[in-house]
Amino acid sequence: MDLFYFPHLAPERATTHVALFRNVTNAAALRKRIIGASTMSGEAGELEREEINYAFIEARLITSWLHLQTAVYQAILAETQNALRTKTVHSEVLWNLNPTNNITEAIRRYGISDTTTSLLVVRIDAGTIPANDMELKMKKVVNGEIVPFSQIKDITDWSTIKKYHKLVDELAIKNARGDAVKECVAVDNIVTSTVAMKSVMA
């Protein structure tokens, strides 16, 4: 379990818990559950939605801690300015990660899918729930093992990221060809910058 703490944000949004799950076995069921929860009505619906009130992110599409942090930060910023483009701060994280303006596409690509095995579970809130309890709550929802975020380096799927961001023919990537480390640094920087400027994209 990892976390972001932004001391300058309003207390109710200052803490974000992040858990990286590997070997997730219930992706398909979880996806169905999320869709189901959105249409449930009454008190049962509220409870169900609270149970799964996280951003579920396809971990292979995340390049670095900074990349995720930028998406989370810009989502919180949009929320405090009443400028959310999607329904919740958590879905806004997914929207921020996708380079286009299509919300469905953002959720399909960056959200959980039936084939997901590595999943990032992100909860933006006041941080009043201790990390241990948060971990237990997350484990109730996701079947998999929590690993340190640093393992993302074994998970990132660079070629899909390059495809989604249309980077394959860009000079920055062509110049770095043959040098895998340099190429990853360049991709990470472009992808992170794209997320940061999402709100003012053309």
Partner: peptide, 26 residues
């Protein structure tokens, strides 16, 4: 927005410019 767009265009072309980390246009 203009400054951010110029930066990302440069980044994609492999020009050495600083990366963008946050934008609050308002």
């Amino acid at each position: 927005a203009g400054e951010a767009r110029a930066l990302i265009r440069c980044l994609r072309a492999g020009v050495n410019v600083p990366g963008i980390r946050m934008v609050d246009a308002t």
